[in-house]
């Protein structure tokens, strides 16, 4: 494992920026954090997950699929330099692993892999969460991770690309700091994971009555924030813009919290109430995905709970559900 002082990290990032289009957590004008270019704000690696969906780096809110114009057909090209994204928390890296599998399964999503293929992903872990809270080591799911020990960034590579990138870093981590990393790696899973497992079990054994979803649905204002901030939400809608000279087809994030998401051409909607849509949102992550993918697809990043104006993000709902029916 390598070690970097904060100043050496800056140099390392500059080095990476030669080969890659670098994006990492930055602070915007009003204190909002996001993953962006270091030219667009001061770099702030501390503070935990950024509020926006980090997987937007590869699956943006709106993306052009193709443009057809007067006999020509064009698609957006991959970036000149591949992306290098820092700022994924351990939970975010699980999300990325999950959607990598989703977009690669069966019909490979070429739009996603246009940006994802060849990209370098680095996790940010260690004692750099909100107010210095520990973000447990990722232990994989990325090319390398940067673990904040409190004084230095420890750098651990995974896979060939990661190993190549960190190979030339001169300083090895001290045994004491390596020990800190090892100890953090052994941290027990948080109570949130157990909560979601319990909620998942309740859903899969049909122990949550419809009346519960009626209550949750009453509180849903259909802002769609839960979906648009969720790193494992991958639904999109496709639209064509036609003008006299061209057709532009693009896709944009969709939301299962909208009536139109499942409405049939006849007008009938199998998810025609907020209660059914709220149930679907939670059920999909906690009950349907475990069947299809073998794991719950919520990794407790906290974004839907943070953005929901009425407090019905997945963790809040799971808590309520387990408290009442567990």
């Amino acid at each position: 494992m390598k070690q970097l002082t904060p100043h050496e990290l800056e140099q390392f990032l500059s080095h990476l920026a030669v080969r890659y289009e670098l994006r990492l957590p930055i602070l915007l004008a009003d204190g909002t954090r996001t993953i962006g270019s270091p030219d667009d704000g001061s770099v702030v690696l501390h503070g935990g997950a950024v509020p926006g969906k980090p997987t937007a780096a590869f699956f943006p809110q709106q993306d052009t699929i193709f443009t057809a114009s007067q006999g020509t057909f064009s698609q957006t090209l991959p970036p000149v330099k591949p992306l290098c994204i820092l700022g994924f928390t351990p939970a975010d890296l699980h999300c990325l692993r999950f959607i990598d599998r989703f977009f690669g399964d069966g019909m490979r999503d070429d739009l996603y892999f246009r940006l994802r293929q060849g990209a370098v992903v680095a996790g940010i872990t260690g004692y750099c969460g909100v107010r210095g809270a520990l973000l447990p080591p990722a232990g994989g799911n990325c090319d390398f991770e940067l673990f904040w020990s409190g004084e230095n960034w420890l750098v651990r590579a995974y896979g060939a690309t990661g190993a190549e990138l960190v190979a030339e870093l001169p300083n090895q981590a001290t045994p004491k700091e390596e020990e800190l990393f090892t100890q953090a790696l052994a941290t027990a899973p948080d109570s949130g994971a157990i909560l979601l497992q319990t909620a998942s079990q309740l859903l899969r054994t049909n122990r949550v009555p419809d009346s519960f979803w009626e209550e949750i649905g009453e509180r849903c204002i259909a802002c769609t924030g839960c979906n648009v901030t969720c790193p494992t939400c991958t639904c999109f809608g496709v639209l064509d813009w036609r003008s006299a000279t061209k057709v532009e087809r693009s896709r944009t994030w969709d939301s299962c919290q909208l009536d139109g998401f499942m409405r049939e051409a006849s007008g009938h909607n199998p998810l025609g109430s907020a209660a059914l849509r709220s149930r679907r949102r939670i059920h999909h992550k906690l009950a349907a995905d475990p069947l299809k993918w073998g794991e719950i697809s919520c990794f407790r990043c906290g974004r839907c709970d943070a953005t929901c104006p009425t407090g019905i993000g997945i963790m809040a709902v799971a808590q309520e559900l387990v408290a009442r029916f567990g």
């Binding site: 909002t32 509020p51 953005t307």
Partner: peptide, 13 residues
């Protein structure tokens, strides 16, 4: 992307 510090929207939209 919502402003997370705005006194009204507070990270939501």
């Amino acid at each position: 992307e919502p402003s997370s510090s705005h006194p009204v929207s507070r990270g939501g939209l």
